[in-house]
Write a protein that binds this DNA or RNA. Structure first.
Lengths: 155, 155
DNA sequence: AATTCTTTGACTAATATTGACTATTATTAT
DNA sequence: ATAATAATAGTCAATATTAGTCAAAGAATT
């Protein structure tokens, strides 16, 4: 414990607050000053230790009164389906495969009819078309993975 | 909450009034005086927080007896507003504006919290990023319009 | 020795604040 | 009526105040 690096210390400091609060809102330079590190190290700590995989959502604002807010979210218990879908997608996704995935989500009662509709609109061919079918498939994969990741937790 | 910037404070002040009234009519210099800022900051607050994307329309008059009036619009009552929203998006949409629009959809009960989450995931910067911020904004606009059009038939 | 993780800082991006200048409308004086 | 003046709001660019990115250097681990 005594040989922790500073990033670990900052991590623990924030997690102590999060043990008693749903979220923590900081001013980046303040925390940096508290631990005597450059401000960008706070970003490093956040990017390596407060990811969505760990159950944290981070949001921030620049400018006067700017802040970084870290929120703890509850990861759903049964996310095997989501994990395997994400793993299966890779970096390209055809229209046909995307429809299969949406159907799977619906069959597993992970999404309802309205949500099916919204997701299909988001990955609609005309919406994400780029005159380049490879790029379109990449875009479709990215969007789908982003949505699947979002479905893994509830706020 | 105590460390908000002044623009946020002015925004909340006006929205508190709007919570109980359909509209609020102010004298710019009065509000500026109340918060001890230059008058043009009131324009900044209005331009960034009371746009049609936010679900407000603003009208004003100069000269003696001049005023600024902010009025809430209701997406549900008025399908035209959905059209003007789509028109306002045009062919490019920033991350900030997109978040504003999604929030407005939620405020107007056109979508629920989960749907907010899904839509934000679909237009997330990292999801649709192409190492070209112009293209990202175009993509975000396309996806958003596609979803808005879908919502038209989904309620 | 190689690899991975941490630390640093220069540069970039986003947002807020300010004030000089402009535009519009109302009121007063001629 | 018309012109001058007063009383408003609008625009825009400069500056201030934050946070984000990225790559290089250093430290720790394998």
């Amino acid at each position: 414990m005594a040989d922790e690096n500073i990033s670990d210390l900052i991590e623990h400091y924030l997690k102590e607050i999060l043990a008693e609060n749903e979220q923590v809102k900081i001013r980046r330079s303040e925390i940096a000053g508290l631990f005597d590190v450059v401000p960008s190290q706070i970003n490093y700590v956040i990017n390596t230790r407060f990811t969505i995989q760990n159950g944290y959502i981070v949001e921030s604002k620049r400018g006067g009164g700017g802040y970084i807010r870290i929120e703890k979210v509850h990861l759903l218990d049964d996310i095997d389906v989501l994990n395997s879908l994400i793993a299966a997608i890779g970096n390209k996704l055809s229209k046909r495969d995307s429809e299969t995935i949406v159907q799977t989500l619906y069959n597993n009662e992970l999404i309802n009819r309205r949500e099916v509709s919204i997701i299909l609109a988001a990955i609609d061919k005309d919406a994400i078309d780029l005159n380049n079918s490879d790029l379109t498939d990449i875009m479709r994969a990215n969007i789908m993975v982003s949505i699947l990741n979002r479905l893994r937790y509830e706020r």
